[in-house]
């Protein structure tokens, strides 16, 4: 168990192994591990970001949905009001039209009646005149009795 030349040999071996470790073992291992750490960190960050995005998207979707619902309700309301208004308008317009048509019918009928009565009176007058002419031709001088005839006609 004495110190001898082995010490020198072991020292040289030790130095050589440390240098080898420093040159060809440590740097590549360190690089690989650091790269993997970076990859994992990136992955974690990405997943966190994705989770946040999802949350945001959900919130946005809900908001949009609510807005759409509200809009739809408004539209339906408006449509209902519009429909009611239209019905009202049309009904009142129809009523007015009916009244107008009826009124014009009445006046037309009245006018016709007046015209027909005038016609009839004329015809009756001429018929009476013709009859009276016939009678008078036969019995009397026409000129003598015309005042009576005219009185008759006026009474018709």
């Amino acid at each position: 168990m004495d110190i001898n030349l082995t010490l020198i040999g072991q020292s040289i071996a030790f130095v050589v192994f440390v240098i080898f470790c420093m040159k060809i073992v440590w740097p590549p291992l360190n690089r690989v591990i650091e790269e993997r750490q970076k990859v994992i960190a990136d992955g974690l960050a990405a997943s966190e970001r994705a989770g946040k995005d999802l949350e945001n998207a959900r919130a946005t979707a809900e908001e949009e949905l609510n807005a759409a619902k509200k809009q739809a309700a408004e539209l339906i309301d408006q449509a209902k009001k519009r429909a009611a208004k239209l019905i009202d308008e049309e009904t009142s317009r129809g009523h007015a039209e009916r009244e107008k048509i009826i009124a014009s019918g009445y006046s037309e009928v009245e006018a016709e009646r007046v015209r027909v009565r005038e016609d009839l009176r004329q015809q009756v007058a001429s018929l009476a005149m013709a009859g009276a002419e016939k009678i008078i031709e036969r019995e009397l001088d026409a000129q003598k009795h015309s005042d009576i005839v005219e009185k008759l006609v006026a009474e018709l």
Binding site: M1, D2, Q10, A13, F14, V18
Partner: peptide, 15 residues
């Protein structure tokens, strides 16, 4: 076992 030899451990410590 080389570490049962004093030379080995002294060499390491010397470094």
């Amino acid at each position: 076992a080389p570490t049962t030899d004093l030379n080995t451990t002294v060499a390491l410590a010397l470094g």
